[in-house]
Write a protein that binds this DNA or RNA. Structure first.
Lengths: 209, 209
DNA sequence: CCTACCGATCGGTAGG
DNA sequence: CCTACCGATCGGTAGG
């Protein structure tokens, strides 16, 4: 995850503004997740934050911009995870395991934003949609790239790499639907189990753990 | 899929009414799928059918009832598929394969209704929500039942049956997100490939095909 | 950054 | 008098 914390010295005012935007987005996401985008009124986001509606409209152009930011950020993460793992120059066997484990973990941690993104995709602005689709293509390309490489090296065996990429994505991503906080399993436990199921699905030959 | 075609002799009037309801639901689903529930106006559903809004309101109490019916029906199918397969009294190995294949196929065929259901769940009525949740529990119980039985019989090997059920469900269900009509693959091809990936994931010992 | 407010939209319904 | 519908309009509420 780049672009974090390495901006040039910001004025206090800028930091305060940034903090306000982040707070609004966090509360918006919370309400979009529990009540849906259309079921959420800007007034309710404001009152929950102890401010009024025009405060929100001072920081964001319209309701859609809140959704745009949440969805573009949520869809960027998976691709960033894969590229970060690739950047560490591990051997393919390790890279594959790390990639799947971290993807699974990230799905659990960001399940609210991912859910919002899937449900409300129809309502984002055209510009945000372009970003979102680019993010998804970037992720697809990165994941199918790792799978194909591992396949060539004889580490795994997948028939149709396109289908395998999508089915694997489903196995990993579905966590955002079924995972419940406070249950029997911690996110790390789920990630570990998803990893083992995924490796079996790919017919992995006993790779290093 | 029971409850079909064995109703007592219906008058022509009843059949016409039933046909009108079905036509409205089909058009509503089409528009909910492409534009979202809130993005669809009753007027547009009506005009697409060549009728007016009060025609819709004669057959349905309100907009939510359209969504309710689509979602309850869509969530009932998976459980019905599993119970139908179980009712055929195959040996477990055959039942497992048939169940997964038919689930995968049904996901592709009903992808529009499934997508609507996932996206718009927040907007269904409380009564419909109860049905929907009962449908999901029924499906979960049926699928994890087959997996546990196959595991006991030594046909497959899953660690945590709850997690395996959910991850398998994700692998199968994700088809509603990624499948595109008119692409390289027919629904039957996808179902076949999902089946093979699923069996590998479950560490199935060469079961009969 | 709030109070006060408008323009537009849309789900739902009464009369005939 | 009932059914199946249409033209017109209103109550309510959201974004801005």
């Amino acid at each position: 995850m780049p672009e974090q914390g390495r901006e040039p010295a910001r004025t206090m005012r800028e930091e305060v503004t940034s903090f306000k935007r982040a707070s609004i987005l966090r509360e918006a996401a919370r309400q979009f997740y529990t009540k849906g985008y259309d079921g959420t009124r800007i007034d309710e986001i404001a009152s929950e934050l102890g401010v009024t509606k025009p405060f929100i409209y001072y920081h964001f152009r319209n309701k859609t911009e809140l959704l745009d930011e949440i969805c573009v950020r949520a869809t960027a993460i998976s691709g960033e995870v894969l590229e970060a793992v690739a950047g560490r120059q591990h051997e393919t066997a390790v890279e594959l395991r790390e990639a799947i484990r971290l993807l699974a973990l990230q799905v659990i941690e960001n399940r609210a934003d991912i859910a919002i993104c899937f449900r409300e995709e129809k309502y984002i602005s055209p510009g945000a949609r372009q970003h979102l689709e680019a993010n998804r293509r970037r992720y697809d390309a990165a994941l199918s790239g790792v799978l194909k490489r591992a396949d060539r090296e004889g580490l795994i065996s997948v028939g149709d790499a396109q289908v395998a990429t999508q089915v694997l994505t489903g196995a990993i991503t579905w966590g955002f639907v079924w995972y419940r906080e406070g249950g029997r399993l911690q996110p790390e436990d789920v990630a570990e189990q998803v990893l083992e199921l995924a490796m079996a699905m790919l017919n992995a030959r006993d790779l290093p753990a």
